[in-house]
Design a protein around this nucleic acid. Structure first.
Lengths: 138, 138
DNA sequence: TCAAGGCTCATACTAAAGTACCAAAATCAG
DNA sequence: CTGATTTTGGTACTTTAGTATGAGCCTTGA
């Protein structure tokens, strides 16, 4: 919101400056009014593009909105979520156990709980559901 | 490319129209030059935003570029690719067999071949690799 | 302090997944 | 037509995955 105010202030100032410049240029007879107007038009055309570009860039950066609330709603714990991430990377239970420094039994327990909470029959289905629920970055 | 030419033609015409209008308005003394310039500036500001908006909309629509060439390069056959898609949906071999109307043995063969071609040890890893290779819509 | 939930681990199974090898149709390009 | 793939399917095994159950340890809120 602050930036919006700033941008509009800058625009107004630019406009005022242009007024003075154009008036001076026109009155002094250096350039014709057509050229003055053309320059202003082109300038503001590109200013519009620039502003829009910046605004859209923010939206694009907001691509991965992981739904933390949904994770809570499903009752998925911190550790279970870590396991879920490793599953989505394509790791086996043994490999996950090694990366998280626990036994394979532990991972099996977590996976089993995850499948119940995500209402999935297999880990592949869990991946799909998790992505649909936006608790995994696509 | 055609649209680009059209858009620029329209812009030039708009500019010319504005010239005449502004000249007339100014010379007839109806409105001051400041207001004329301000209107032009604002108009072109929004034109810039509009043009940019349209250009970016096209890019966004180009999100899912499945790399058909890569599928060929990897030697993945039509049927194998169908199986890959079903795998990514989270289906079991038996379920895939049912949806494709073949036996589970056939699916196992396809999966085994896929794992070799995708250089994966598990189906979950195959999903990941396939998405990285852009042969599956994220 | 005490119950509750989360994390850990184990055992014992059952069920899928995956490998290896083989082989018969079907399809397709030369 | 013929050789090369592709698709299909089977058998026999090994390896992961997943379930069920029980239990000890830790942290935390009431």
């Amino acid at each position: 919101m602050k930036k919006t105010i700033f941008v509009f202030s800058a625009l107004i100032i630019a406009l005022l400056v242009l007024f003075q410049l154009s008036k001076y240029a026109y009155l002094s007879g250096d350039i014709s009014i057509e050229i003055t107007i053309a320059i202003i038009a082109i300038a503001f055309f590109f200013i519009g593009i620039y502003i829009n570009q910046k605004a859209l860039r923010k939206k694009e950066n907001a691509i991965p909105p992981i739904d933390l609330e949904k994770i809570e709603q499903l009752g998925i714990s911190q550790r279970e979520y870590e396991v879920l991430i490793e599953i989505s990377k394509g790791l086996s239970n043994k490999e996950i156990a090694d990366t998280l420094f626990v036994s394979e039994s532990t991972i099996k327990t977590h996976v089993s709980n995850l499948l119940v909470k995500l209402d999935a029959k297999r880990r592949t289905q869990a991946i799909q559901k998790a992505k649909d629920l936006q608790i995994l970055s696509i």
